[in-house]
Simulated assay, not measured.
Amino acid sequence: MSVITFTSDYGLVDHRVASVKGSILTLKEEVTIVDISHQIQAYNLLQTAYIVRNSYSYFPKGTVHIISVDSFFNKERKSILYKADGHYFIAADNGVLSLIFYDIKPEDVYEITFNNRFDDQVSFTSTDIFAPVAVHLQNGGLPEVIGRKYKTPKQLSFPRAVFNESEKLLIGEIMYIDNFGNVVSNITQKFFEKTAIGFESFLVKFRNLALSKIYNQYTDLVPDWKIEHEFHGKAAAVFNDAGLLELTIYKGNGENGAKTLFGLQVGEKIIIEFA
């Protein structure tokens, strides 16, 4: 099966998403195009990285992933191709791929060069460059035909949680807010468990609030499903399916979830205090 995924910050009102899909289908009718998201905030690379990183591995090996975020054509900016974890990723050289693969070394990185001689005719990167490259790869074409090895793609630093040993504080920050208003931090379960060795207790602190327990999954908040309704609106900390510490309101949503009720924003600190 030929699969191409498509992620963008184009939204769903304008023509751009349809234009890219039409370009792909014109070149290859027998292909499955899967939308990951088109509701990413404009130019938000960290949000893009979180969404793509946590979805791409569910697709078959050999899938081609088009990432059209902060990708409008500029002669001074390259388009690049990552081959990583058995998949292909096409994006502008804006650092987004380094955020997705901050802990995985890509097998190969290519600067896409096949369309360089037509720069004056390129008006929309996703239709004029990304779409034909994706189809070329799904037709079994070699990356070397459309690009050359590239050693210096733009690198962005993924925000990492740190442990202040003298003050016994694990310090992280909010990196993503989902559709339910859940607030996702950059504190991994693995780092937390390693840091917690030797301590008897902890507090998850944010703003002027604190929680003394972290659940392993969202549904663990409800010990008895006969009275499940009584837990609606309960605040909790959980390790989500990406293995990251998340603040949540049980059965919350974008209007009354953790983001709204706690008044939290991306970039704010979350601290775990050990004792």
Results as ranks from 00 to 15, higher is better:
73 F>P: 03
257 G>N: 01
271 I>H: 13
32 T>H: 08
30 E>S: 12
126 S>T: 08
254 G>A: 11
211 L>E: 14
210 A>Q: 14
80 I>Q: 02
219 T>C: 06
58 Y>G: 12
200 E>D: 15
144 E>S: 08
167 E>V: 05
120 D>W: 00
157 S>A: 11
246 E>N: 09
274 F>V: 08
27 L>K: 15
98 S>V: 05
249 I>N: 11
6 F>E: 08
203 L>I: 11
141 G>Y: 03
219 T>M: 01
77 R>V: 10
123 S>R: 04
45 L>M: 07
109 V>G: 07
185 S>K: 02
1 M>V: 09
15 H>L: 01
153 P>G: 04
49 A>C: 08
172 G>Y: 00
224 D>F: 00
122 V>Y: 01
146 I>L: 00
202 F>E: 12
84 A>E: 09
62 G>P: 08
170 L>A: 04
106 P>Y: 09
211 L>Q: 11
91 A>I: 09
212 S>I: 08
209 L>E: 09
213 K>Q: 06
4 I>E: 02
14 D>E: 14
202 F>V: 13
56 Y>K: 09
195 T>I: 03
104 I>M: 13
49 A>N: 10
217 Q>L: 12
161 A>P: 03
112 I>P: 03
118 F>C: 06
81 L>H: 01
131 A>G: 00
142 L>C: 14
133 V>N: 05
171 I>S: 05
56 Y>M: 05
254 G>L: 07
235 A>M: 12
95 G>I: 06
2 S>F: 02
19 S>D: 11
27 L>S: 12
189 Q>V: 07
138 Q>G: 07
93 D>W: 07
64 V>E: 00
